[in-house]
């Protein structure tokens, strides 16, 4: 029987096989939403989707692309911005 606190879907369910052959359910915390571009809303590539406690032990270069506005703007929007800046 599912424990009362696990009846809601606020936790992620992970099915694990035990050494005895049983399938048991583990409850994990859900991952945060995908990172999105600040101007157009496109899904950002190269940005890790993890909880802060895992991000803390991760090197900076693994968390976002190494470029100006990396992890904030998508490449298309960055190009537009840079062209705008150059022309003004």
């Amino acid at each position: 029987m599912v424990a009362g606190r696990h009846k809601s879907r606020s936790m992620r369910r992970v099915f694990r096989k035990t050494p005895g052959g049983k399938v048991v359910v583990h409850y994990r915390k859900k991952k945060p939403k995908l990172a999105r571009c600040g101007s157009c809303g496109a899904v950002l590539k190269g940005v890790v989707r993890e909880r802060p406690y895992k991000l803390r032990n991760m090197p900076k270069t693994k968390k976002r692309p190494t470029r100006p506005y990396g992890g904030v703007l998508c490449t298309k929007c960055l190009r537009k911005l840079m062209i705008e800046k150059a022309r003004t």
Partner: peptide, 11 residues
């Protein structure tokens, strides 16, 4: 020129 892509973008 101004570089608009990559790690040196804006330079």
């Amino acid at each position: 020129c101004v570089k608009i892509a990559g790690r040196d973008a804006g330079g």
